[in-house]
Nucleic acid binder design. Structure first.
Length: 427
RNA sequence: GCGGCUAUAGUAUAACGGUUAAUGCAUCGGUUUGUGGUACCGAUAAUUCGGGUUCGAUUCCCGGUAGCCGCCCCA
C-alpha cells in the first residue's frame, strides 16, 4: 500500500493553495530550531537570574506615542520602520520595536511601589519594518537587562559584567569577543562648539559611528567638511569611563576597552554606551549594545529615574554560536527518552497504556502509532536519538512480559513493566 | 526606502532555445510477513508567479514576489 504526504490530486492543484512560506522577514521554528532557541533563552535567563535580575514582560502592543515622544527624529523612525496601525477604537498602535520604552513605562508607573535599585530582565520579541538581511529580520528576540535607580558607576560595571558573563556561559572564550566602551557625556564635553557647530554634531557622531566601515582617508575627508578650520578632534578617555574599565578588570574582565567610535544610534542614551563585537570577522554587526539613559522616565512625569541597560538579539547570538561552534550537539535532539512501538494497530492502545504508565514516572515517552514496519520504526527511533524502545505485539499483550531495548548499547531487559522502570532511568 | 546578484523536487546541486529535466541526501515501499543505524532494488517528488519574443521558453526580455549582498537605518 502506498501512502502519500499529500494525495497526487492535491499536488496537481498546488497553485490554487496558499503558500507554505512564512511572512517576509520572520522565521518558523521547526523543532530543531526551537530547541536551539530554547537553549539560548534558558541560558540567558539563568545568567541574568544569577545576577539577581527579576523577569518581567509586557504586551507586544504599545500606543505609538510611546515611541514618538522621544523627539521628531524618532517620529520618522516610528512612521517608516515600525508596524503601526489604527485599531477599531481609533487608537494608534505599534508593535514594539524595542523594550526600553516599555520597561521605562512600567517602572515609572510603579515608581512609588518599587524599591530601588531594580534589576529587571525580559526576553521580548520585537518587530521592525525593514528590509531583511543576515542578522536583521522583521521579528527577533532580545535579552533585555536593565538596572534602575543606581547612578553609581558600579551599576555600569555590573551590567557590562552580566553581558560578558552571558557569552561566557555559552562557552565563549574572552578572546572571541571584545567589549567597546564609550560615553556620550565624554563626547559632549570634548567636542565643544568651537570645533563643530551644534547642528552638525549629529552628522559628526554618525560619521564617527561609520569609521570602522570606511577608509581612513575617506574619514578624514568627511571629517574636514564638518569641523571648523584649523581645529582637530582628539577624543580621550575620561575618569568615568576609566573607572568602569578598571572596575571590569578588577572583576577579571580583560577584553573591554575604550573606543570613541561607539556612539549608539539612539538619542536617549546620556552617558556610558557600549557594544560587544565578535572578533572572528564573520559577523561584523554588534551582537549586543546598551548604555545609560538618565532621563527616559521623565516623559511620564515625576522625577527622573536613572537607568542603564543592554539588549542582545537572538539572531546575532545564534550566528555567533554557530560561527564559533558553541551549540552542543545534544541540544538539537528533540526525541523522547523512550518510544513504545506497537507491531500493528491492534497494539496501539496497549502501547499507549504503557507509555502513560512511564510518563507518570516523569520520563519523556511517545508511541509510534504509524503503520510502518517494526524495523523502520526502530530505525527511526534510533536516528532521532531516542534512548530506549519497547516493542509491543500480541505476545507482550497476552503475557504482560515486555522487553526494553537500549538503543545505544543494544542491551535488552525482559519482565513486567513495573520491574523494568529502573532501567529506563539512565540518562 | 535605494542599488546589485539570484530563484530547478522536502533539501543540496546538474543540464538544455526542441525527445522522458539528471544526481546525492531525505521520505515511502521491498530484499528481511516481530527488532535499528550498513548494503542493494524500486517509488513519490521540481523549472517562483504574471506577461512578452519565438514554430517552440525551464533557458532570452520585462514586471511581480522571495532570498542574498551593499547603502540608508539600526531599537
Amino acid at each position: 500500500m502506498h501512502y502519500y504526504p499529500l494525495s497526487p490530486t492535491i499536488l496537481l492543484m498546488t497553485e490554487k493553495y496558499l503558500s507554505t512560506d512564512s511572512y517576509k522577514g520572520v522565521r518558523d521554528f521547526y523543532p530543531e530550531d526551537m530547541a536551539i532557541q530554547r537553549y539560548i533563552f534558558s541560558t540567558w535567563a539563568k545568567t541574568a537570574e544569577r545576577y539577581g535580575f527579576e523577569r518581567y514582560d509586557a504586551s507586544i502592543l504599545e500606543p505609538s506615542a510611546l515611541y514618538k515622544a522621544k523627539g521628531a527624529e524618532n517620529e520618522e523612525m516610528v512612521n517608516e520602520q515600525t508596524y503601526t496601525f489604527i485599531d477599531r477604537g481609533d487608537r494608534e498602535v505599534t508593535l514594539r520595536p524595542e523594550m526600553t520604552p516599555s520597561v521605562a513605562r512600567m517602572v515609572a508607573g510603579q515608581r512609588h511601589e518599587l524599591s530601588f535599585p531594580l534589576r529587571w530582565y525580559s526576553i521580548p520579541n520585537l518587530f521592525r519594518y525593514e528590509r531583511p538581511q543576515r542578522g536583521r529580520l522583521r521579528e527577533h528576540c532580545q535579552l533585555n537587562c536593565d538596572i534602575f535607580g543606581a547612578s553609581h558607576y558600579t551599576a555600569d560595571v555590573e551590567l557590562i559584567s552580566l553581558a560578558y558573563q552571558t557569552l561566557i556561559d555559552f562557552g565563549a572564550k574572552p578572546d572571541m569577543f571584545e567589549i567597546r566602551v564609550n560615553s556620550r557625556k565624554l563626547m559632549q564635553e570634548q567636542i565643544s562648539d568651537k570645533l563643530i557647530s551644534p547642528d552638525l554634531l549629529p552628522d559628526y557622531l554618525r560619521l564617527v559611528d561609520k569609521k570602522a566601515k570606511i577608509s581612513n582617508d575617506e574619514f578624514i575627508k568627511e571629517e574636514k567638511k564638518l569641523i571648523k578650520d584649523g581645529a582637530s578632534v582628539a577624543i580621550v578617555i575620561n575618569d568615568k569611563v576609566s573607572q568602569v574599565l578598571q572596575g571590569l578588570i578588577s572583576l577579571g574582565i580583560q577584553n573591554a576597552k575604550f573606543d570613541s567610535t561607539i556612539t549608539r544610534g539612539f538619542n536617549y542614551y546620556t552617558d556610558t554606551v557600549f557594544e560587544v563585537f565578535d572578533v572572528s570577522g564573520e559577523n561584523n554587526r554588534a551582537m549586543l549594545g546598551g548604555g545609560r539613559y538618565d532621563n527616559l522616565t521623565e516623559m511620564f512625569g515625576g522625577e527622573a529615574i536613572s537607568g542603564i541597560g543592554f539588549g542582545m538579539g537572538d539572531v546575532t547570538m545564534r550566528d555567533f554560536l554557530e560561527t564559533h561552534k558553541l551549540i552542543p550537539e545534544y541540544i538539537r535532539s528533540t526525541a523522547p527518552h523512550v518510544i513504545v512501538i506497537p507491531m500493528t494497530e491492534e497494539e496501539n492502545m496497549p502501547a499507549e497504556l504503557i507509555a502513560q504508565h512511564i510518563r507518570k514516572a516523569g520520563i519523556t515517552v511517545s508511541t509510534d502509532i504509524g503503520i510502518r514496519k517494526v524495523g523502520k520504526k526502530i530505525g527511526d527511533a534510533s536516528t532521532r536519538g531516542a534512548r530506549f524502545i519497547i516493542v509491543i505485539g500480541e505476545n507482550e499483550v497476552s503475557s504482560k512480559q515486555l522487553t526494553i531495548k537500549n538503543l545505544l548499547s543494544g542491551e535488552e531487559h525482559t519482565g513486567e513493566l513495573g520491574s523494568l522502570m529502573n532501567y529506563l532511568d539512565v540518562k
